[in-house]
Design a binder for these strands. Structure first.
Length: 213
DNA sequence: ATCGGGATTGGC
DNA sequence: CCAATCCCGATC
């Protein structure tokens, strides 16, 4: 049993973009609701670490909020966005190094009825877990779920890794809404899914870099 | 103790 | 385009 968990942790104890890609196609479970992950973003850590990332919540060092990002991989990092939305991350990288993947969008593959009850304003089933705030709602996640081990079979919130998706089947682009490092292409999604959210650049971000010589 | 900014969303 | 809403990090 412990060997199975350890093996899964190993799969996510890697650099942020690789870990984020690995999460595509995985299923996130919360009670009866299962969501197939179709859109993710990679986030690194502080300047002293191997993956400095000013856009990351851990980009300026360890705090109470980002503490779990510095721990082992496969743990739930939840934060409150704009005072009302709970957004979900899966921690990545080796223990002691900060990084995580924001789960941006997914398709509800189980527990449709419960998901609909949790997201009464959703106009279609495709919108149930589209966008990080909506995905958090569909799964019924709250701040009290912070630090939940996702690879523990007895956990109320579980991550079920499936076969890795080939890189050729993954689309890449800048992360949504970040005001710094706005051109770093650390957003990954499955282009065949209609549940992927729309890209929006932060109004506070500097103008996009062009590749003109 | 207080101040201000968001890894967003949905409605106008 | 813009308000809603509140936790948390930074600063005094």
């Amino acid at each position: 049993m412990a060997a199975v968990c350890a093996q899964s942790v190993e799969e996510l104890a890697i650099e942020p973009p690789a870990a984020a890609r690995r999460l595509l196609g995985a299923t996130l479970w919360s009670g009866p609701v299962g969501v197939r992950i179709v859109e993710v973003e990679a986030y690194g850590g502080d300047p002293a670490g191997p993956w400095p990332d000013p856009a990351s919540h851990s980009g300026r060092g360890r705090t109470k909020r980002n503490d779990v990002m510095f721990g082992p991989a496969g743990v739930l990092y939840v934060y409150l966005s704009y005072g009302m939305h709970t957004c979900i991350n899966v921690t990545s990288g080796p223990d002691g190094v900060a990084s995580a993947a924001l789960i941006r969008s997914g398709e509800v593959v189980a527990g449709l009825q419960t998901a609909r009850e949790r997201r009464p304003s959703a106009r279609s089933d495709l919108d149930l877990a589209r966008g990080p705030g909506n995905l958090g709602s569909a799964l019924g996640i709250t701040l009290s779920d912070y630090g939940t081990p996702l690879l523990d079979p007895s956990s109320p919130i579980r991550l079920e890794l499936n076969s890795p998706v080939a890189d050729a089947a993954i689309a890449t682009g800048p992360r949504v809404g970040v005001s710094s490092a706005a051109d770093v292409p650390w957003r990954f999604w499955l282009p065949d899914s209609r549940a992927v959210s729309v890209y929006r650049r932060s109004p506070r971000a500097p103008l996009p870099t062009t590749r003109s010589a």
